[in-house]
Design a protein around this nucleic acid. Structure first.
Length: 506
RNA sequence: GCCCCUUUAGCUCAAUGGUAGAGCAGCGGACUUUUAAUCCGUUGGUUCAGGGUUCGAGCCCCUGAGGGGGCACCA
């Protein structure tokens, strides 16, 4: 990054040039990178001496690169048009063949080839163009054409540097592969890795679709506090912070739930929030201390309606333009892939039935606990002494059935023991009206008919000894409502700047 | 937190304990339809850090740091 010279400084650019500053670094480190930067900084000084601003204030483009491709993508090879365009983009590749230079330019939406002929732009401008570096941003003027091979190009007749890149790009073919470097220098990752850019476009499309879908169903988007007096709504260790004026300890929220429920109490009937939450736990490729979660709550419905909404949210968010997707799941040792048409109805199955399918033996929370313990042991699941039937069934499910849930599957009927907030199944008092959506062997959504009997809720909480959840009683006991906690985004590939250990800059 | 793997040029990667290399990028040269352009030449290194063994360490040993994977926990 080049710092602009402050207007008040008495140093003139000629007395203290960027190249001079860099020269000290050359002597210090002497690496190829420093030498390369020094060359590019010297070019900047040269341009300024010649009266050209290497970082001009503005460039008015006529089209984005995908617009040009859309309008002229069908041109026959060897076509010249009169269509004039002004385009802006970053120089990604240069192919110099003497008196003719080809360059690949890219903006956020596409790429196009620049056709720069010495005979067209003139000797001086041609040399200037060949002095561009990979990574520079340029604005070009010219006409749309195709080469003999049919490559859509712009025959450049004028151009200007829009922003000089002082640091070289990563390998033009391999890009950046080191995951650590990709996250630390996300800007470089976004420049060279198509998949990195695409992930965030898809993420935006999905969230935008969620908003549209919920808006169409009468949901209101809200923002609730991030700073909580009590960190509730989930089981997780919170971040602790402090408010000076109140001299009070506060927690960063670990869930959206508590305030959204209060809004249901207040009669808003249908609300949702897409918000950042914070959990002070381990960091891994799939766990970031801060991540985005969506929760939505609807009064008067039950969990079957929430299942329907969940399926609609995802099938409507066709960010890829097709309902056919390939899903990767299974385990690391035994990966499984499935190509699925999301438009087909998704399977719904009770947890106990999935366990039955997997091990060939029927299970139910009403069974004697010793019987389930033996079954668990037979499948390599070691049980803690305090575990009841419900917990053992869940562990059996995770050990024997979960990995096979590659296609979207709603797992329902979780045992009461492991679902302290869910209402009992109206047909089976040992189970709850709850679901978890599994896609690719991973849980991505969770919801239920909420327990709304205050006495029963208190009994459950006390039985579970979940002290932190007790703060939720006020909201839970005041009204009759159902809720869904739905979709969560959890992988770092959709987080632009994941939390990393501080980098030591040499 | 535990186990395994890993860290070499700007990037992607090599290198039996015996002079640290290649491709790309960069630099110089040739080329007016290339497209990872091609061809010829060429610069560039605190081999993550600190100790140790050895005549000699990128390589072996110890300690530490960063990263990746797995387990545990979760989302």
């Amino acid at each position: 990054m080049t710092e602009p010279v402050p207007a008040s400084t008495s140093d003139s650019p000629a007395e203290s040039t960027a190249a001079d500053v860099e020269q000290a670094d050359v002597e210090q480190a002497g690496s190829g990178l420093v030498a390369e930067k020094a060359k590019r900084l010297a070019k900047l000084d040269e341009m300024r001496r010649a009266g050209t601003d290497p970082y001009p204030y503005r460039f008015d483009r006529s089209h984005t690169l995908d617009e040009v491709r859309e309008a002229h993508g069908a041109l026959e090879p060897g076509t010249e048009t009169e269509h004039r365009v002004s385009l802006a983009g970053r120089v990604m590749l240069i192919r110099d063949s003497g008196k003719l230079v080809f360059a690949t330019m890219r903006d956020r939406a596409g790429e196009i080839q620049l056709f720069v002929s010495r005979a067209v732009v003139g000797d001086v401008a041609f040399v200037t163009f060949t002095e561009l570096d990979l990574g520079d941003w340029v604005g070009v003027h010219g006409t749309v054409m195709t080469t003999r091979k049919g490559e859509l190009s712009v025959k450049v007749d004028g151009f200007e540097l829009l922003s000089k890149a002082v640091r070289p790009l990563p390998d033009k073919w391999h890009g950046l592969t080191d995951i650590d470097t990709r996250f630390r220098q996300r800007y470089a990752d976004l420049i060279v890795n198509d998949e990195a850019r695409r992930a965030f476009q898809v993420r935006h499309a999905v969230i935008s679709s969620f908003r549209n879908t919920l808006d169409g169903r009468g949901f209101i988007e809200v923002e609730t506090p991030v700073l909580h007096v009590e960190a509730g709504g989930a089981h997780a260790r919170p971040f602790i912070t402090h408010h000076n004026a109140l001299d009070m300890q506060l927690y960063l929220r670990i869930a959206l739930e508590l305030h959204l429920k209060r809004l249901i109490v207040g009669g808003m009937e249908r609300v949702f929030e897409i918000g950042r939450i914070f959990r002070n736990e381990g960091i891994s490729t799939r766990h970031n201390p801060e991540f985005t979660m969506m929760e939505l709550y609807q009064a008067f419905g039950d969990y079957t309606e929430m299942i329907e909404i969940t399926e609609a949210l995802i099938t409507t968010a066709d960010a890829t333009g097709t309902s056919m997707v390939t899903i990767h799941g299974g385990t690391a040792a035994n990966p499984v892939s499935a190509t699925v048409d999301l438009a087909q109805p998704w399977r719904r199955a009770r947890m106990i039935d999935l366990v039955h399918e997997a091990i060939g033996v029927e299970v139910h929370p009403s069974q004697p606990v010793d019987q389930l313990r033996e079954l668990a042991a037979a499948h390599g699941v070691s049980c803690a002494p305090r575990w009841g039937q419900g917990k053992i069934i869940e562990e059996l499910f995770e050990a024997t059935a979960e990995h096979a849930l590659v296609r979207p599957t709603f797992v329902t009927g979780h045992p009461v023991e492991i679902s302290p907030l869910a209402r009992a199944d109206r047909h089976d008092p040992f189970l709850t009206e709850r679901f978890e959506l599994f896609i690719g062997s991973r849980e991505i959504a969770n919801g239920y008919s909420e327990l709304n009997d205050p006495v029963e809720q208190r009994v459950r909480f006390e039985a579970e000894q979940i002290a932190k959840e007790l703060g939720d009683d006020e909201a839970a006991t005041a009204i009759d409502h159902d809720y869904l906690r739905a979709l969560e985004y959890s992988i770092k590939e959709v987080i632009l700047f994941p939390t990393l250990r501080p980098e030591v800059l040499g």
